[in-house]
Design a protein around this nucleic acid. Structure first.
Lengths: 124, 124
DNA sequence: GAGGGAATGAAAACCGTTGTCGTTCTCATG
DNA sequence: CATGAGAACGACAACGGTTTTCATTCCCTC
């Protein structure tokens, strides 16, 4: 269902292409004048994640962070300071993960690969 | 400081080389007759992690899971069913992560790579 | 032994997240 | 435009893993 709040969350994610927590996104929406509850933000993010429209990442504190993403399998280079993200793909990693798991007798192989660094703006 | 409880946690980690949550480890210790508090298990795991003697992984629920590990940089193939783990290394991944991050202007590059699958025993 | 600093653990606090439930909104239909 | 049903909303409470608190106990040196 399309609602004012749902659209606001989606727009906010597009506006700021960085991994942010639900609470940060909520605060940002409130600051820009939107009236929306935290629960609703969580639910909107959940349904967007279910639809594969956003990627979810756990940060070191165990919080979930969200970012609007292109469809299809890809990985991220994430700035540990500002959360800015670049999508990358790497066939080399895919095949490596698959091979190394099969060599040890594992099936149904999946993998998670995230690259962290400090972006040029934050390092400057 | 060396105490009975600290040793028990360390022994338990060696006994069962799989990623398990603090609560699972605590329950296992209690079941085998040890008197130890949950808080102490958390603290023992924390200090072992600080000393790089155990690796920490967040599962999908956001829980931390712990496993005794060899020193040095390596990755894991983890069974999603029983937590059994194989340590692997892959120079290809290291260089790929480094290259792709630098290409986008990131410095101080780190990466996390985890491979999940179903081990031959659980699949059988 | 005695003393002091670290470790322990039961209970409370913490905090991100999810459930509850009465109210409000959206949208297809008349 | 009116309406009714089902979905979405949101304030609040509940949940659960983890951390903090603080009085007690333990380890180690002298």
């Amino acid at each position: 269902m399309t609602t004012r709040q749902r659209s606001a969350v989606r727009d906010e994610l597009v506006r700021e292409p960085a991994f942010r927590s639900a609470q940060e996104i909520h605060a940002s929406l409130r600051d820009t004048g939107h009236r929306i509850g935290l629960t609703t933000v969580y639910r909107a993010l959940q349904s967007l994640a279910d639809a594969d429209e956003v990627d979810v990442l756990r940060n070191d504190d165990g919080e979930s962070t969200y970012r609007a993403c292109s469809a299809g399998h890809h990985h991220h280079v994430v700035c540990r300071s500002c959360g800015t993200t670049v999508e990358v793909e790497g066939r080399a990693v895919e095949t490596w993960a698959d091979r190394v798991a099969r060599e040890h007798g594992f099936v149904d192989v999946e993998h998670t690969v995230e690259v962290f660094g400090t972006c040029i703006r934050c390092a400057g």
